[in-house]
Amino acid sequence: MPRKTTNTKAKVADDVAAVAESSELNQEQLLEFYAQMVLIREFEKESERQYTRGNIKGFLHVYSGEEAIAVGAINVLRNDDVVVTHYRDHGQALVKGIEPKQAMAELFGKSTGCSKGKGGSMHLIDADKGFMGGYAIVGGQLPLATGFALASHYRDDDKVTLCFLGDGALNEGEFHECLNLAKVWNLPIIFFCENNLYGMGAPAKDHLAAPDKIYKMSEAYDIPGFRVDGNDVLEVHDLMTKLVKQIRGGSGPAFVEAQTYRIQGHSIADPANYRPEDEVNEWKLKDPIPSFKDWLLANGHATQDIIDQMHQTAEQEIIEAAEFAEQSPFPADEELYTGVYAE
């Protein structure tokens, strides 16, 4: 479990491997998952506020509504496993271990950001944490991820690469080229499609030949494909636990489709009024955070007090992250020229 929120009453089991091997989660772990989901949501709410204040510029794509995927999937990985993703990357970055402070500072374009302020919201990267980015060209992350998996295969180092992509990215050639390559060379990689039903403003059902069969798209490459409820953190975790184990054991690539919904527009500039109201309302009821909370309460894993406390702690951590970002300096002018080539 790469990221531990230090903020819950619950302390996460120290034995990280225990989580990875079994999908059975103890109470502390369950609460930790909830805390992480809340932390992401708070981060996104704050980033939207800061955008309106002019502290964040350019494109801002928030992850609200999709938290169960990052939390359910990435917590299965080891610290040294690899995550590669697209520009909707805040949630995944936080779970893989980038601190809210470093992520928020990056959104502010500050020198203390995880990419020194040079990448921004769409390019959160922390190689030490195994979070290899954050790439803004749709589909561009897929070959890179395939390359990370190739390196693991080459070195025989038993790392797994988890590559996220959107439903829109399924239509880029890279998706098909990479599935083929990964299978031909038996690479340790999971291609994980976050199907939030929309590309930018276009419904996936209008752009995919077989929108109901996304998880079957890998079949022709002889790669096993799975579909999960992307708003159910436990279901995601369960499937990923099995897959990661198999892949670490040398089974070769897998493909996952998780169905979810982005609560907000594509980016902050998008009011998303092309979406039918009932659809939006229907998915509001499936919001992964209240659903998981209800489950925790109903099964006696948490009390309302504990829940409230977790929300407060997350809010506090995010306020501190925003303060840190605000107080941090912008990169010095000389930074413009550093990092173009190796020093």
Partner: peptide
């Protein structure tokens, strides 16, 4: 433009 990729950070972008 300067011989760099365009940075995100606003003050740096202005320089580029």
């Amino acid at each position: 433009g300067e011989e760099v990729p365009i940075p995100y950070s606003m003050p740096l972008e202005k320089l580029a």
